[in-house]
Write a protein that binds this DNA or RNA. Sequence first.
DNA 1: CCGCAAACTGGGAGCGCTCCCAAGATTGAC
DNA 2: GTCAATCTTGGGAGCGCTCCCAGTTTGCGG
Lengths: 336, 336
Amino acid sequence: MTDVPRLRPTLDEVAERAGVSRSAASRVLNNAPHVSAEKRAAVLRAIRELDYVPNTTARALATRQRGAVALVISGEAPSIFADPFFAKVIVGASAALEEADLHLMLCLAASDRSRRRLAELLRARGVDGAVLMAVRENDPVLRIAREAEVPVVFGGRPAGFEAPWYVDVDNAGGARQATEHLLARGRRRVGMICGLPDTHASRARHRGYREALILAGLQPVPPEYGDFTEPSGATAMAALLERQPDMDGVFAANDNMAAGALRTLRGAGRAVPGDVAVVGFDDLDIAQIAEPSLTTVHQPIQALGNETARMLTGRIAGEEPSSLILPTHLVARAST
Amino acid sequence: MTDVPRLRPTLDEVAERAGVSRSAASRVLNNAPHVSAEKRAAVLRAIRELDYVPNTTARALATRQRGAVALVISGEAPSIFADPFFAKVIVGASAALEEADLHLMLCLAASDRSRRRLAELLRARGVDGAVLMAVRENDPVLRIAREAEVPVVFGGRPAGFEAPWYVDVDNAGGARQATEHLLARGRRRVGMICGLPDTHASRARHRGYREALILAGLQPVPPEYGDFTEPSGATAMAALLERQPDMDGVFAANDNMAAGALRTLRGAGRAVPGDVAVVGFDDLDIAQIAEPSLTTVHQPIQALGNETARMLTGRIAGEEPSSLILPTHLVARAST
DNA sequence: CCGCAAACTGGGAGCGCTCCCAAGATTGAC
DNA sequence: GTCAATCTTGGGAGCGCTCCCAGTTTGCGG
């Protein structure tokens, strides 16, 4: 809060006050061996008395470790933050990073300028590594990832790119469960509302849906597309109804769009689940709040953030962790 | 993405290749004067050829400027991220920081450990400044703010603390508008659902509500308290109804709780706005999605983030900006 | 053609910390 | 008591960049 740029004591001053060399003081700081008990105590006391805090920047320069990683969220902010998905990812990642004593630099890579800054950050080793989230097909961020001078881990696979290190959730499996659940409820005319087509998640969920239908000997109908927001789900549902008025089940690629679908169905006078059963994906708060409450595929979002960060810290430490796919599972509620 | 810690070229190498001194190269880098056009061109070429990127850490050490600020969100993460409030703040702050070429360090100050790390960050000048959000009464973060060695700006005033620099929204004014709107709609028995009592926002909104009622010669009824989440709003509404079954208007301290109130009212068979009119606060997406759509007080959340960050960059630059209160306004929808 | 101001130029001293290494102090086995 | 092995210790050289400063050029009226 202060404005006075009062000088902070340096390690030299600590050493001087403790009557030891800077080297010895440094050893105490990093509790390295080769310091006698007395000197250690003296240094510790001096640190306390001077209220010394080591300068992170100087340490970073000397050790070549920044003590921070970037969490990059690609794409336009508005759509990005429409739901609490990223918030949960951040909470999970934050916990893992705290454990590794790493700070979190949040980079919203939406504009060209922000991407330029990001590229510089990753090339100049301004961070020790980066987690990349929400990377789409042909995303300009991919290039930045390729040219980065630090380890990079993807949170969710980017579409159309074989990410060497990633953590993802079982999108296809979850979607299949969702669709099979609808079929088990006796639905036969099951439509789908997909998300943005250039995301791996949307594609994989669509694939799972198709697989389930085909396995059941049914013909998948072409999906409608939304952008993962509630209104887009409402619109897509309307289009779906128009195309196939006798539809009796819908799988939406996320809860927001499922909530939109519910709204449209309510407006159209269709009972849920009486006339049409609806399943979402994500298991966000909205799924429980919606009326009727939403059957949905639970995905461990916080764990996704956590594991991604953990994988990154592993790679920073020189390990070669293998990519990870977290399980998803159906949560049956009132909408089916 | 690479693992090879291939050495990045340094400014010395650039200078050597360009046939100039390191000083001259540095001048070009910071486009300072006193470099001849030819040398400048030579340096620029060398930079391109060597694919040189200046090392931020070294620069930070030399200039004593980190090029990053902390965005601190105090309190428990779960409640924090229940709604997209912070996401919007982040988007706004991020834009302002990008303009100032500052990176954003996101610090979730929930645990003791995270607060310790935060304190160290702010005392060791690991960042150039900090924005503090969601600081509550007697928040341990206050102490960290006081001991910080860098400028600090509050986003939203902390309760029970005269923040020297802050950006806030007009909570009391908005609440008064909301309540007056209910009164103008002919409501006379207007209850309130408050948020967490140790937040300034909740208190100010309650104050605005009381002012409006008292000005109209009406007796405020004691509020119910929630924690800004949807379920807590539903519970509070139930309690309110039980206490005063003939209630005909409700002002909730945020949209989430208002949505919960709507749910309870629907369950209790009360028509909205027929029997009970409801007003929220925030104007988040949920206000438009709710049924009926929610009359609410719009607050410029993204601007809050933006102005807070801008004020911080101002203070970092040595200015003494004065605190700011952003206007709020009522958005009338179907719930009143 | 001179003198002086203004523009260039590069050397060098930091910024605050880590870490290697050589020198000195201890220890212990014989 | 000796000598090698081990532990301590502090000096010093960086990490890569900025910036002050003194020295050198250049420009241009007179």
